[in-house]
């Protein structure tokens, strides 16, 4: 039985790095990639737990996360394209129409 604590700490680290990218970067595409990073860190946790518990459900869940991530990437990138067409920029600070 592998000791999963290092895996979980690694997962947390990756998650926080991804989160930092999401909140700090202004380029929409990089923010997007940071989100993928966060998703992957969670996947790592799930696989680690699956291995520890000997239960395949964790891995199945990872499978589903990947499908959703693929769908999300397709939609997200389509939005990015539509946004770029409209605003000629990917700077998130300039995309501020969601306010009063």
């Amino acid at each position: 039985m592998p000791d999963i604590q290092p895996y979980l700490i690694l997962s947390a680290t990756l998650f926080v790095i991804g989160a930092a990218g999401v909140v700090a970067r202004r380029n929409a595409i990089i923010v997007f990639m940071s989100i993928e990073l966060m998703l992957n860190s969670v996947n790592l946790s799930l696989v680690a737990f699956s291995a520890q518990l000997g239960d395949v459900t964790g891995q199945i869940l990872v499978f589903f996360v990947m499908t959703v991530a693929a769908a999300e990437a397709a939609i997200g990138l389509a939005i990015v394209i539509a946004l770029f067409r409209r605003k000629q920029t990917l700077n998130l600070d300039e995309i501020n129409i969601l306010k009063w």
Binding site: V23, R26, L92, D93, I95, L98, K99, W100
Partner: peptide
Amino acid sequence: RKIQTGIAQTYAVVFV
């Protein structure tokens, strides 16, 4: 209402 910047990232900061 100044809090409501319309910039999603600001909300994300608050979220974190």
